[in-house]
Amino acid sequence: MSDAKNGQPSDAAKSSLSEGLSPPQQAPGIMERADLLTGIVLLVLGVAVAWMSWEMPRLEVRRIHPATVPGLVPGLLGLTLAFCGAILALRSVRASADAAGWRVFGGIFVSPEAGRVGATLALALIYALVLVGTLPFWAATALFVFAFIVTFEYAFSASRSPLWRTVLTATVQAVIVGVTVTLVFQFGFLVRLP
């Protein structure tokens, strides 16, 4: 299959890249730094899991077979995870030596993409963790849908339409979604909504 290695980048290819199918076209070293950090996190997590498994009761009073203690499998998994984390971290250590690279790495957290992700995440968390359960479900939903649309169509959009139009259409969609979803689930699927 070596005949294919010299092709021209095409539009199709670029978008398939953005879907995360091939290595992302980023500054070199970013993935290594991410790997170094996750490797360390996984190492710590693995060791912690293994330790907790070791500390688990062996249930001797219940006269269970000693090879069937509850901590056996999680312990083995913890050790394997720690091993994989160590490999991941060690492999990336050399590539992450220079300080300048770390500044580039830090840069991805303040990029416009990070802003979009942060906004989406904030809206999603506020809706699921705060609004649902506090407000009636339809109101919580309508509020979330409205805020989401306005945020992305107005605040994050390059070609913004007039604010009044966004607000109007967003309100209409928000109310329709909130009421329809509530009605369908409450009376259609007999779900007792929070």
């Binding site: 979604v177 329809t180 369908v184 259609g188 699927f189």
Partner: peptide, 18 residues
């Protein structure tokens, strides 16, 4: 299209009740 899907869901719900 969200509304369209929901219409689909609703149809299924009523089928179940029936």
């Amino acid at each position: 299209m969200g509304h369209r899907t929901i219409a689909g869901f609703a149809a299924s719900a009523f089928a179940t009740i029936a």
